[in-house]
């Protein structure tokens, strides 16, 4: 690497007994409690299921995971690290090192999936595809350019869009297989990654909003315009990438709904209003319930079909019971 590495200008011993922002402690604790390693997931139980996929479906799956590996590698070695010099508190720096490491765990876990399910030749072919696919390379380079830029707020926007939007063309597929009772252990592993990315997107988006608080109205407008321009640029590229991957299996349209749904959440993590209307975010219910069994609207009193809602049995409540 020829460019000069940007580092925090001055380092002081970090004192966790003097906290400026409680969110740093909350998120640190949450990340530590959520820590996991791919070795804990019994991926080998998916070997039989893998054999039921057609060669085209296997190739698609390999490519999706190779693409996700690239994004996690970018986030681990460039993205999260590039945010450290911009940190407002020393504890934020520490949280970002945790995020960077976890992204490396994510990147490595795809290799665990590969080595469990595929041959060396197939693995090499998937990685070669990832270096040759124009749209995948473009999305990595768009984000990386902003990481290398000199605007801390824009870096956080790029990072949040990566964590909360760019992964989801890939995450769709294991949720799809899971909804059809295929590769269910692989899906369990991906759900752990999905959960981590939610904490990362929430935290970086939160720090972005804190940084924006002291900005002038003009500067706020500039950042908002930039955010939506970047989102559109990434979105257009993402649609093409989705077609590259999913046209062969006829899933591209539902994947695009999933993209819209997650783009909304990325914007909300940055404190902006959701942009895509529900008519284009109505992802197939099977995918949503593969993501979260609670996502089914029929559990809700307002949105469910009234009759399906049953009030639970009364719980006798004493003050001592409120010990969560």
């Amino acid at each position: 690497m020829s460019e000069k590495l940007k580092l925090v200008s001055q380092v002081q011993a970090i004192n966790w007994n003097r906290i400026q922002d409680d969110k740093d402690v909350d998120v640190w604790n949450r990340l530590v409690n959520n820590f996991w390693l791919p070795e804990k997931v019994p991926l080998s139980n998916d070997v039989q299921s893998w054999a039921t996929l057609t060669p085209e479906e296997q190739q698609l799956t390999m490519r999706v995971f190779a693409g996700l590996t690239l994004l996690d590698t970018v986030q681990a070695t460039v993205g999260a690290v590039s945010l450290i010099p911009d940190a407002i508190t020393p504890h934020e720096e520490a949280v970002l090192t945790n995020i960077a490491f976890m992204e490396s765990v994510h990147a490595k876990s795809y290799s665990s999936i590969f080595s469990t399910l595929a041959s060396t030749k197939e693995i090499d072919e998937a990685f070669r595809w990832s270096t040759e696919n124009v749209n995948l390379q473009r999305k990595a380079s768009i984000v990386t350019d902003y990481y290398r830029g000199d605007d801390p707020l824009k870096r956080k926007v790029a990072s949040t869009l990566l964590e909360s939007f760019l992964f989801y063309s890939g995450f769709y597929l294991p949720m799809y297989w899971s909804s059809r009772a295929k590769l269910t252990n692989t899906a369990d592993l991906i759900r752990l990654i999905i959960r981590d990315e939610a904490v990362h997107g929430y935290y970086i988006g939160y720090k972005f909003q804190r940084g924006l608080e002291s900005a002038t109205p003009e500067r706020r407008q500039e950042i908002k315009d930039y955010t939506f321009e970047l989102l559109f640029e990434l979105y257009e590229n993402e649609v093409q990438y989705t077609h590259d991957l999913y046209d062969s299996v006829g899933l591209a349209e539902d994947v695009k709904k999933f993209l819209h749904y997650n783009a909304n959440k990325a914007l909300m993590n940055l404190g902006y209003e959701a942009m895509f209307p529900s008519s284009v975010t109505d992802v197939s219910p099977a995918i949503l319930s593969a993501l979260s069994p609670n996502a089914d609207e029929n559990h809700d009193f307002f949105s469910g079909s009234g009759s399906s809602y049953v009030i639970g049995k009364a719980v006798n409540t004493e003050d001592e019971d409120w010990d969560f």
Binding site: S292, N294, A295, V315
Partner: peptide, 27 residues
């Protein structure tokens, strides 16, 4: 909440609703 959290999506609402015997109106 956030559906990314899987089984714990809006769990706090479920816990309070069950303890107090009131419905979860919306997520």
């Amino acid at each position: 909440g956030n559906t990314n959290f899987g089984e714990t999506y809006c769990l706090a609402a479920d816990i309070v609703a069950a303890k107090c015997n009131v419905p979860v109106l919306y997520r």
